[in-house]
Simulated assay, not measured.
Amino acid sequence: RGRQYIDFAVDGARRMQALINDLLAFSRVGRVGDGFERLPLDRPLDKALANLAAVVEDTGARIERPERLPEVDGDPTLLSMLWQNLIGNALKFSRPDTEPRVVITAEQDGDMCRICVQDNGIGVPEEFAEKIFVIFQRLHAREEYSGTGIGLSLCKKIVEYHGGEIRLDPGSDTGARFCFTLPVAENPPIDDAQPVAATPTEGTNP
């Protein structure tokens, strides 16, 4: 029984540490210095997939992505957290005895890009489409799926901090489909100055 009590204490400490780390990450969004830079969304996606490499290998998951994603002005660390939470959830809430499959799509509409992450997991009932973005809201017991209930709240805060929106697409037939928008990076200014013709130097033939 003493060993059981120790196990309970250790498990509680681990949960508390995870909760503290997630709360710190949540509170820092928008409060740390301006770390925005122009970058393709592929870069934070690559970092997120590297962090999830062990899970992807263990589950045998297939990640399908566009050859090239749009460029945005954003914080690379926060965007990596966004990708890692969305793809991590897709792998966590997979169906038993089913190889997880995550499909990432991207399209541009004017000055905004729309990115969707579709999985073939257990999905989310439509009536919980708003609730899942509220901090500490969980649809499953901790015994079924681990987590602190902050991940999607963090995603929402990151996307809105970058000037976009995120939502659950209720039109998904299988699994869950999360779509978010971000402003695309502005084109660099064009230099209208005309090139100046070179003047022949003295002693050279015209």
Rank of each mutant, 00 (worst) to 15 (best):
R43Q: 12
G203A: 08
L79I: 03
D7Y: 08
V184D: 00
V134C: 02
E160A: 08
V55M: 06
E165F: 05
G12K: 14
E143S: 12
E126H: 07
D22L: 07
G35R: 12
R3L: 13
S94F: 02
G60S: 09
T105W: 00
G110S: 09
D34T: 13
I115H: 08
A198C: 09
A185H: 08
K92G: 04
V124L: 04
I104R: 05
I6V: 15
Q194W: 14
Q137S: 07
E126G: 11
N120G: 05
F136S: 11
L19F: 11
D75S: 09
K131Y: 05
S172D: 09
L79T: 04
F128T: 01
T105I: 00
N89L: 02
R65Q: 15
L39G: 12
L19G: 00
V56E: 07
R15H: 05
L78A: 11
G163T: 06
R15Q: 12
G203I: 12
E67L: 03
L152T: 01
K92H: 08
L78V: 04
V56K: 03
L24Y: 15
Q137D: 10
K156V: 00
I115T: 06
I122N: 09
A61H: 13
A54E: 15
K47Y: 13
T59L: 15
E37S: 09
L41S: 05
S146M: 04
G88S: 12
H162W: 08
F128E: 13
R38L: 12
Q4E: 14
T181Y: 08
A197S: 07
V117I: 09
G121W: 01
G12S: 07
V159H: 01
L78Y: 11
A176Y: 00
P170Y: 07
L79M: 15
E160P: 01
V72L: 08
E160Y: 02
P206V: 14
L86D: 05
T181R: 08
L152R: 06
I87A: 08
I158C: 04
T105G: 14
E99W: 05
R14S: 02
N205R: 08
D192Y: 15
E57M: 03
C155P: 00
V102P: 05
A61K: 04
E144H: 02
L41A: 06
P76D: 00
P96D: 06
L152C: 04
G110F: 12
L86F: 05
R1Q: 10
A141M: 03
R95S: 07
E160R: 09
L86R: 05
I115Y: 05
